[in-house]
Amino acid sequence: MALEIIESCVNCWACQPLCPNDAILAAAPPEYPVFRIEAEKCTECLGDHAKPQCAEICPIEGAIVNELAEPLNPPGSLTGIPPIRWAAVQAEIAAR
């Protein structure tokens, strides 16, 4: 079991020092444009913390996913912006 950081990561470094297993690698563009989790080191913080630390501090909804590709912080869960509202506003901006 391991978590994964996907391309929506903004490289803010918040997760990196929190990992109890030192499993998080900084971005190294162009090959690695965003942060990564070394799957073999990741324990999802079992035994160390009640919740995975990277996902607990990550400010970007959807950027950290589990092995089923489910986001630990689904849309709307961190910003409080309802996904419908978000989509409507983005469509309105695109139409300008």
Partner: peptide, 14 residues
């Protein structure tokens, strides 16, 4: 200092 420990409603890091 890129990391933040809070979220404010007037900020979006993205």
């Amino acid at each position: 200092a890129p990391a933040c420990n809070i979220q404010c409603h007037y900020c979006n890091r993205k």
